[in-house]
Simulated scan of single mutants.
Amino acid sequence: MSVEMVGHVTRARYEELVREARELVELQTRCQWGLGDKALEIEPLQRHGGQGHGPVENMAGVNELLQMFADDVGAALNTIRNYRWVSSRWPAQRRRKGVSHYVHAILASIPDEAERWEAIDNPPLDERTGTCRWTEKTAHKRVGQQTREPTTVAQKVAAIHDLAADEQVASQITTDLLRRPAVAREAMRDTTARHLVNRAQVEHDHAAGERTRQIVQPARERIQHTTGFIDLIAACSTFVAAGGRIVPNLSGRPFTDDERAAIHRNVARVRAMADWIEGAADTGNTSLDAGLAALLRGDADS
């Protein structure tokens, strides 16, 4: 016969632990009421504003007294202030045994006293246990506050939006969620979401390409510069080598007047080219004037 387990304990042990814990909560509740009542006795809560509502609290003086009391009993000022306020909202005869101080604190925000008294005496149905009792969730629901632990889809979405107000947090959450295939598929069904994702992808690719171009451009310019330098040196070397190979073989071969004239014209072109190369190397100016351009084209030969 199998034994029903709740966590790592049996159902019977769980029920026993619940009974013991309820006693502890009851003890804690009595302590909370006691601290609040004592703080309220030291400094009664004054009502604010309006004729006949008594003087407005001198918050500086009240806080000073409550801080002294908190220090003397070893508690935090905010804790004492909260307990004092809850005690002021619930006279002793209106407090309900079996209902925690925490639930009383939540329901204390109901402005109307009659409504507050009625609320504490009419706990809602707890769907899990099938009994009428107060819990944190039902108390928050009664006063129209969001529960600490969201239960509905809308509450959970709202909680995530609150946490994702920071752009860095939102980016990390979105990245993590889109790693889930089912979530990604569902998100892409939304036309706006799909459009924004596609646009972001295009912008990302463009930015990545631009970064690559910025990184590569200096290297490419250096390569182009180096290639041009090598080509120029190679051209000069080729010309010198060709001249050194050809000229010695011309010994004993007389040229006609036309041949000598052609040689002089082409040597002039070579000399002009050499001057242009030197000027470009020294000044960086690679432009050609009309006369030099015509000379290099050989227009004088026509």
Rank of each mutant, 00 (worst) to 15 (best):
L177V: 03
S287M: 03
R96G: 01
R142Y: 02
E203I: 08
V247S: 02
D282Q: 09
T212I: 10
D121A: 13
L125P: 09
T192S: 14
L178T: 11
Q146E: 14
I110Y: 05
V267G: 00
Q217E: 07
I106A: 09
E136G: 10
D205A: 13
T283N: 01
T29K: 10
I233Q: 09
A234H: 01
G228R: 09
A219C: 02
E186L: 14
G284W: 00
G52F: 14
Q93Y: 10
Q67E: 15
V153W: 02
R89C: 11
D282N: 10
G228H: 02
G50I: 12
Q155E: 13
T129S: 14
Q46D: 15
S287P: 01
V62F: 11
K141V: 11
R13Y: 05
A274V: 07
H140E: 14
E15K: 02
V169D: 11
V25P: 04
E203D: 13
S237F: 02
V9P: 00
D289Q: 04
C31W: 14
N63K: 15
A262H: 06
V240Y: 03
N285R: 01
R94I: 01
L196V: 13
M59L: 14
A159Y: 05
G36Q: 14
A154N: 01
G284L: 07
A281V: 09
G298A: 05
R179Q: 13
Q224I: 04
V202L: 15
V157S: 01
T191G: 09
N285H: 06
A170C: 07
E43L: 14
G243E: 06
T138L: 13
V153S: 07
A281R: 09
V197C: 11
V25H: 05
A114M: 11
G279N: 10
V99I: 10
